[in-house]
């Protein structure tokens, strides 16, 4: 059975159909890229899966649970974590704290445990800390060491994107949704991240869906590519299959011709 299954989902925004009867699935251990021209509904798809929006129609099944009607935090707890296209960190919290927030849904200490400083709570804090550092260490030395206690707003753009991924990793999700993880990175950083996405699956066992514009990244990471246009799936397959699909070329080139005019 697929880990994530989007069945016949639609979403309207005031008459504008952002997602149109979409069927889409992700197998466990897969890296799937979602591509498509601007406004094709990629981010909306993520927002639907993570519960930020509710679909008008259809169901989303993750790991045997129907996600429709659940709140975002419940969905995260079931094992889906995401990053945002416009980096959205907790900028005034430290790098470490940002990652520690990711552990929130895996831990239980409440107000009273904390005030009484119960041993269980202290152990849990320690574990949260370790898990967070573990997630941050995935990016080598970039986010650890003296950076741990710096507020997130001092980070460079690329590091902000990395921290966002680390925060998502810290939720111990099964499925990571990465929304344009390389946007705004320079070519070197992009390459590095492409490799990291592969390692996220191979070493850490995440299943990954990534929205990406950079075709080199898509080519580098994807087991399978799904192409959206106007909220519909117009093609699906390996990178090479999709890259030669006529409808895909049309969707991109058609737009491109308009854009360059």
């Amino acid at each position: 059975m697929a880990l994530l299954e989007v069945r016949n989902v639609s979403k309207d925004f005031g008459g504008l159909r952002a997602i149109d009867h979409l069927d889409f699935h992700v197998e466990e251990g897969e890296i799937v890229s979602v591509i498509g021209p601007n406004g094709a509904g990629k981010t909306t798809l993520f927002n639907l899966i993570t519960g930020l929006f509710q679909p008008d129609d259809g169901e989303i099944i993750f790991d045997g649970h129907n996600l429709v009607g659940l709140r975002p935090d419940q969905i995260t707890k079931l094992g889906i974590a995401r990053t945002f296209q416009t980096v959205r960190l907790f900028f005034n919290m430290s790098v470490l704290e940002n990652a520690m927030v990711g552990q929130h849904c895996r831990t239980r200490s409440g107000v009273i445990d904390t005030i009484l400083s119960l041993p269980r709570q202290r152990q849990e804090e320690e574990r949260i800390r370790q898990k967070a550092i573990e997630a941050l260490s995935f990016f080598g030395t970039r986010l650890v060491g003296f950076r741990l206690h710096q507020p997130a707003f001092v980070l460079s753009y690329a590091n902000r994107r990395r921290l966002e991924i680390a925060r998502a990793m810290a939720t111990e999700a099964k499925l990571l949704l990465l929304d344009e993880p390389t946007a705004g990175m320079n070519p070197r950083e992009t390459l590095e991240l492409t490799e990291l996405i592969g390692r996220l699956r191979d070493e850490k066992g995440f299943t990954i869906v990534v929205i990406e514009h950079d075709m080199r990244v898509v080519k580098g990471v994807s087991d399978r590519v799904v192409v959206l246009d106007y909220g519909r799936k117009i093609a699906e397959g390996t990178y090479d299959e999709v890259a030669h699909n006529e409808r895909v070329l049309e969707a991109y080139l058609g737009r491109k011709a308009v854009r360059s005019a």
């Binding site: 907790f90 107000v111 804090e125």
Partner: peptide, 30 residues
């Protein structure tokens, strides 16, 4: 109490909520 809560799971979730409610929710904070 406030010193204890500040550096705890609860305090961090509060601050995350203050910073960006939507993201906090997407990170699993109820």
């Amino acid at each position: 109490i406030s010193w204890k809560l500040k550096d705890s799971r609860i305090g961090r979730a509060w601050m995350a909520m203050r910073e960006d409610e939507q993201v906090a929710e997407a990170m699993g904070v109820n």
